[in-house]
Simulated scan of single mutants.
Amino acid sequence: MIPDDDPSRELTVANPAAPGTTYVSLVGNTYAMLVTGEQTAGRYCLIDMRVPDGGGPPPHRHDFEEMFTVLEGSVEFTFRGEKHTVSAGSTVNIPANAPHHFRNTSGAPARMLCMCTPAGQDEYFLRVGDLVAGPDAAPPQLSEEELKERRHRAAELAPEYRSVFL
């Protein structure tokens, strides 16, 4: 049997251009929080990622599934040490616990949708990144001390969000 409908949960319509969308700058990328764990009762989150040429996170792994759909450009994914170049229109699923990272090596900006199941990555990004005004806002100009503090905070909070940097 499936449970009864939960009328306290509402329909979510996600549009990165909608007023009120939260944008976070993190490691030079800009992430729009489209659907949060709060909206899905923790089941998943959906993030619109804008990744400049050369952008991407350091190698890491986590105990949740992560799926990327490349919308614009191409992105190089390194999965368990093996590189895969993925172009617009393709989807990549990263199994839980597998070491991976991605890098935009295309010479042009790239854009992806990232779904994490269960949610939590949305909260992590909000806690370690910097809020920006929109998708085209320049990342904040951080001093060396501020960059060091952001890296420290990211590493310190990673275990709370079931992640580890490699």
Results as ranks from 00 to 15, higher is better:
residue 120 G to K: 03
residue 82 E to W: 02
residue 58 P to N: 13
residue 105 T to F: 00
residue 18 A to Y: 06
residue 129 G to W: 00
residue 126 L to N: 03
residue 102 F to V: 03
residue 118 P to T: 07
residue 165 F to D: 08
residue 17 A to S: 15
residue 106 S to R: 06
residue 164 V to P: 00
residue 123 E to F: 02
residue 18 A to F: 07
residue 157 L to V: 02
residue 86 V to T: 14
residue 132 V to H: 03
residue 16 P to N: 09
residue 7 P to R: 03
residue 93 N to L: 15
residue 134 G to T: 04
residue 88 A to D: 05
residue 66 E to G: 13
residue 61 R to C: 13
residue 27 V to T: 11
residue 70 V to K: 04
residue 139 P to C: 05
residue 73 G to W: 07
residue 147 L to M: 09
residue 9 R to C: 09
residue 24 V to D: 05
residue 135 P to H: 04
residue 99 P to Q: 11
residue 18 A to H: 10
residue 136 D to E: 14
residue 48 D to P: 07
residue 154 A to G: 12
residue 88 A to P: 01
residue 74 S to D: 15
residue 64 F to N: 13
residue 2 I to M: 12
residue 10 E to M: 11
residue 2 I to E: 12
residue 17 A to R: 14
residue 40 T to N: 05
residue 126 L to V: 04
residue 141 Q to Y: 00
residue 26 L to V: 14
residue 39 Q to D: 06
residue 70 V to S: 09
residue 134 G to P: 05
residue 92 V to E: 05
residue 1 M to Y: 08
residue 41 A to M: 06
residue 148 K to M: 02
residue 102 F to K: 01
residue 86 V to N: 12
residue 45 C to T: 07
residue 11 L to G: 02
residue 143 S to Y: 01
residue 83 K to F: 00
residue 53 D to C: 10
residue 67 M to I: 14
residue 133 A to E: 15
residue 109 P to I: 06
residue 4 D to G: 14
residue 1 M to V: 15
residue 43 R to C: 05
residue 38 E to Y: 02
residue 94 I to S: 05
residue 18 A to I: 07
residue 117 T to G: 07
residue 6 D to S: 13
residue 133 A to R: 08
residue 146 E to N: 05
residue 86 V to D: 11
residue 31 Y to K: 07
residue 19 P to R: 13
residue 135 P to C: 00
residue 156 E to Q: 09
residue 113 L to Y: 10
residue 137 A to N: 08
residue 94 I to C: 07
residue 94 I to W: 00
residue 101 H to L: 12
residue 25 S to E: 13
residue 34 L to A: 07
residue 72 E to V: 15
residue 132 V to Y: 05
residue 147 L to A: 04
residue 126 L to S: 09
residue 132 V to T: 11
residue 166 L to C: 09
residue 19 P to A: 14
residue 51 V to A: 04
residue 129 G to C: 01
residue 116 C to F: 05
residue 86 V to Y: 09
residue 58 P to E: 15
residue 116 C to E: 02
residue 70 V to W: 05
residue 70 V to I: 15
residue 94 I to H: 04
residue 33 M to Y: 05
residue 104 N to E: 10
residue 92 V to Y: 03
residue 39 Q to E: 15
residue 141 Q to D: 11
residue 54 G to F: 12
residue 90 S to V: 02
residue 95 P to V: 08
residue 133 A to M: 00
residue 123 E to R: 06
residue 80 R to A: 15
residue 34 L to P: 06
residue 10 E to P: 00
residue 59 P to W: 06
residue 1 M to H: 11
residue 31 Y to M: 15
residue 148 K to H: 03
residue 35 V to D: 01
residue 8 S to G: 05
residue 150 R to L: 01
residue 151 R to T: 03
residue 22 T to K: 10
residue 134 G to L: 00
residue 135 P to Q: 07
residue 146 E to R: 01
residue 93 N to F: 08
residue 124 Y to A: 00
residue 87 S to G: 13
residue 78 T to C: 10
residue 62 H to D: 14
residue 15 N to D: 15
residue 107 G to Y: 04
residue 103 R to W: 01
residue 64 F to V: 14
residue 11 L to C: 10
